[in-house]
Structure formats: C-alpha cells, structure tokens
Design a protein around this nucleic acid. Sequence first.
DNA 1: TAAACGTGGTA
DNA 2: TTACCAAGTTT
Length: 383
Amino acid sequence: MPPSSATKNKNRILPEDGGRPALLLDWYDRHRRRLPWRPPAGERADPYRVWLSEIMLQQTGVKTVGPYFEKFVARWPDVDALGSASLDDVLRMWAGLGYYSRARNLHACAVAVRRDHGGVFPDIEESLRALPGIGPYTAAAIAAIAFGRRTMPVDGNIERVVSRLFAVEEPLPQAKPLIQRLAATLLGAGDAESRAGDVKARAGDVKSRAGDSAQALMDLGSSICTPKKPACALCPLNEDCVSRARGDQETFPRKAPKKAGELRRGAAFVVTCGNELLVRTRPEKGLLGGMTEVPTSDWRAAQDDKASLTQAPVLNGVARWHRKAGVVTHVFTHFPLELVVYTANIPARGRAPEGMRWVPIATLKDEALPNVMRKVIAHGLGE
DNA sequence: TAAACGTGGTA
DNA sequence: TTACCAAGTTT
C-alpha cells in the first residue's frame, strides 16, 4: 500500500495524491532535458516525431538513438513520406540500431496510417495500440505526449521509480499491473468534468499534463533515480519515498535473475572476386530478419570448425578456403556468438550460388548490414 | 507465459 | 570481466 499523505503529515492538508504530481511537474519544468524529438517547453509535440522516437527508444539508449532519429526525419519528414518509402530503404537506414523487427513494424505502421487513417495518427490509445509495433507502453506514450491524453505509459525507468517510491515487494514482471496503477497516481487530477470519449475530455486531458508527467518520471529515472547509487538528495519526491526511508532503494525493483544463454559457434564465409563480395538476405522472420549477411554455417551450441566448413557455399569447386586467424565474437540478447571466418578469393565471378548475390565492396556501407556482419566482413577483409 | 529479439554503455 | 541495463513488442 502507498503511504497516505494525509496521515503522513497531520499539520498540513494535502491533496488526495499527496502533492506528488505537482512536485514532479515543478521539477520537470526546471530540469527537463532537451532532446531532438522534444519541442521547446510548452509547445505541442509532432505525433510523427513522438512515434518515431518512441519506436527507436524501445530498449535503446537516448545517445544511440539521436543520430538515427536525425537521419530518419531528414529523409522522411512525415509519416506519409515514410509510408511511401521502400521497406529495403528503411532497413538500410535502421542497420546498426538493432531489434530489426522494429524497422519492419515501423514501415508497416506508416503504411497503415496512410491507408487506414488518412495519413494522420489516431489520437486514441486503443487505436494506436492496434498499429504494428505499438504495444501498451508506446500507445500510452504517444497518447500522452503527442495528444495530451490523461494516461501513464510505464517503461523501465518508471517501473524503477515507482517500485522504489512505494517499495513494491512483488517481483517483476508480475508487479506490472500494480506498478501501472501506482504510476497513474502520479498524474495530475485533470478536469473533474472530463470523461473518456467526451469532447470535453480534451480540456481535462490537457490540464493533467500527462505527457510531461511521464517524461518527468523518465528523466528522473535516467538522471536521479538511477539503477545504481541513485541521487536521492536531488529527488523531488525523496520525502515521500518509502524505500529511501528504509535505505534499501537500490534493491528495487525486485526482479528474478535471468539465465544466461549458451555460447553458440559457427563459421562465416567471406568470398571475394575482385572488388565484389558474396552476400545473401536473411529470412524475414527471426534473428536479424530481412538483413544482409555473408553466407554462414548454422550457429549451434555444439559446433566444431570441421562441421562448419561442410556448410560452406559451393562455388563450382574453385574455392580454396583460408581460415582467418582469431574469431569474431558478438553478444545477442539471449546468447553469445563466436564465429570463425573463412575467406576465399575466386578468379572468375561466375553466377552467384542460389539465393546469393555479388555486391561491390565499396557500396557495403549502404547495405542493411547488422553490426555482427560488419564485424565479420572487417575481420575477413582485414590483414 | 516465457522466450525471442541487437547493440552499446556502464560499473 | 561479467552482469546488468536501456522510452518494449511479438509470438
């Protein structure tokens, strides 16, 4: 149970919400970060930019996203432009950012907004939630930040802030519904007259400053209420924080440790002919879906180099494989990978094997190459 | 419901 | 260095 502010301080009459929403917004007005997708204080955010940034920011740091966001809005200034682009162009621009299903869903979402919503983002959480790549968090974030709807998106930052503020003992992810309810208490009251679906609701929605409240919690989580060594002395909610009062704030949120994935091994084949490289496109679904790669063997926990070599592409029997010294290592979310690299330089560039193609090495930077493949190619082409 | 899904930063 | 974390969604 959250502490009752009324009982906490008997000498003051506090609002039902304990005054936390006001403290939070006051802090935000003084400390809000300037970010590429944020308009100046007080200005309405562009739904397209909010959506694009929210998709990119899923499990991805602000610093990493910055340059990608700028590239995207420069090339595709609105959702209509993005929906008119080819999926391949979008994947190429996304290469290196990771979680590539996001790029596919991004494109599919832009197409759907054009086709089903007249090129305008719906301003209702439920309709947003129905679009590709938009889950519960992102729907609430867009509704609150771009449209002023009175709803509270809950991301990893807010889970941490709220679980500490109220000392939520239930572990994640079971605690999500409880944290969602507690987080919503940090929204301003809005207009008592407002009702969902009512035209008047907009006035109440805007009054609650839901978007600013959510972003305030996220800024708080990233700069003050950090995972380790939180700067509680600077926190606008510190007097209200249950875990801080007990001194065990760093132990929240409660979470079961996750098991590490098993190392997988395989071989990658860097085949050149003059200034061209042999590549192929991965299947649409699954790991690195739709991205470009050099041919590789399977990646398995129990894989030896000899078995890998038997899976080399067949190049009219002319290929002389050279085992490159060392290995390329890469860590995915759910398993680490170790690839040995074989190279071959063939004299005459015959037809590429089934499902593969030759690309000029000079244009590789324009390919939809995930970072693991950039590492492999750099290793194979290096000294 | 739990596992799949990238990459880079931080301690 | 290992381990965790980052504005989660999909299946």
